[in-house]
Each structure stands twice: as structure tokens, then as C-alpha cells.
Amino acid sequence: MDDLITIFWSSAFIAAAIRFSIPIMLAGIGEAISERGGVINIGLEGMMLAGAFGAVVGSDVTGNAWLGLVFGIGAAVLITLPHGFISINLGGDQIVSGVSLNLVALGLTTFLFRQMFGITDQPQVEGFEPLEIPVLSDLPVLGPAVFSQSILFFIAVGLGLVFWAVLFRTRPGLRWRAAGDDPAALDSVGIPVSRTRWGALLLCAALAGMAGAAISLGQLFTFIENMTGGAGYVALALVIVARWNPLWAIVVAVAFGAAEAIAVRIQAGGITLIPYQLSLMLPYVLTLVVYALAARSGHAPRALGKPFVK
């Protein structure tokens, strides 16, 4: 038992949990907003992958991680446009459209990366190094864990707070919630549903792009094909557990990040009680349980995934 406590209450473990939580936090916040607006994105994974790719290209071309981030956002938004047109303007099936986004993103990024860099020449690009925050980073345990993270962590937490406020305290947020719960009612007061949903979706794409960049520029400083490795699906699950609330998305992301950190620790031989796969499976099982409870109490946006065509 003592062993476990020393493992979990250690700077290294908490730092790893937080590091793993950054991409799914960003993507989860974005997806929470998009789903609040009534658009579900099975293609979140693809948006992230495009973001990861765009960020590496941008950073490689400009030599600047921030410009790389901008490129990543741009790539994610770009690849989301057909999905938005199909699911918002045409009223097509959002699920199937999202599957198509994932396929295109995976194929296109793999192809383009090889086209640009060849197979052998892995670029090492400028990324986001951990940032030591003066004073706070000297705190015991939590200091090195929380306050020596890349700047993206603080951006992600900040965006979670901001978008929580946007969602519940501002006009666009109110409209998004109405668009996801009762688009016909929104339409009847003279606000175009499609424009409202586009806003939520593009925001989600931008955040997913940042999430992808957080993987490529925040962890590996290069691009590897399919490097998101299912993080987009984790983020989709996260949104359910977080009950479509950006604030909760922060917390759940860290919890899911911890599951990944545990798995890494097990693989490194630190824990032998359970197989690491069990730890990686836990977020999905937890999501199923929470969803089973939420399906009854009806927390999901009521018009989620339903096209609104006049």
C-alpha cells in the first residue's frame, strides 16, 4: 500500500498525469461546446491529427512553436469544413460524416508527411518545453508536478474556465445551448441555427487543432503517423463523463490522464498488481457507466446529432 501511495503522490506521477491530460482536455472542452450546440464529432480524432500535423509543419517552416500552433489550428479547421457543411447545412448524418473525416485525416496526414519529409528524415521541430513557474514550482510534490508543465497546460485550464463562462454567461453560449437542445425554438426567435452551430463547431475544430499540437509540439516535437492514437475518442468519452461542462472537462481530463500515467508506470515495472491495459480501459468503462446513468437523467443535449433543416 505504502508503495502505491509513494507512486501516486509523487511529482513524477502527477506531472505525467497532467501531461497526458493536456490534449484530451483541449479537445474535450471543444467537443463539449460543439455537442452543446448539437453537433457531435466522431471526427475529433481526425481534427486532432490534422492539428498535430499542421503544427509540426508550421513549426518546421517558421521555426516558431507558436506559429506552429496557429498552423495546427488552421489545419484542423480546414479539414472540418466539409464535415460542417454536410452535417449543418445539408442535414446529413453527423456520425458517418465524422467517420469520413477520420479516414481522410489519417490518410492525408500520413501521405503529406512522407511527401514532405520522406520516410527516414524525422524532423525535430521547436515545441513547447516545460515552463518553470517561479516560486510555485518550488512547492513540495505539486510544485514540480503542476507548475513545471508546458504553457499549453495553463492555456488549456484557462480556456476551460473561459469557455465555461462563455457557455453559461454570454450570449453566444446561450445560443449554443439552445441550438443543441431545441433548435426550432432558437429559429423561432429569429436566430439562424446553422450560423450558431457553425460557430460552436469551428471553435471545437480550433481547440482540437490545439490538442493535436499539444501532442506533436508538446510531447514528441515531431510527427508520427496516427500519432493521436485514439486520444480523440478518449476526449469524446470525456465529454460524457464531464456532462458537457468545460469546467468538469478539466477535472475529468486529469483523471483520464492519470489512467494513462498509471499504464505507463505499470509498463515501466513500477506496479505489478494489474495489467496496464486495464488502466487504459478504465476511462471507457467509466464512461459507459456514467453514460448509463446520464441516459436516464437526460443530461445530453436533446437535439445532439439531429440535423435541423427547415
Binding site: N89, G92, G107, F111
Partner: peptide, 22 residues
């Protein structure tokens, strides 16, 4: 992997062609 692009494009056109608007 370019095969994936073909798959994804086919499916996008497909879902668009079967949408409410179409």
C-alpha cells in the same frame, strides 16, 4: 494510406448525397 483518403472521400460524398438537403 492514400487509400484511406479515397475511402473517406467516397463516404463524405455518399453522406452528402443522402442528406436531407440532397
Amino acid at each position: 494510406s492514400t487509400g484511406l483518403v479515397v475511402q473517406g472521400t467516397v463516404i463524405a460524398i455518399l453522406v452528402a448525397s443522402r442528406s436531407a438537403a440532397a
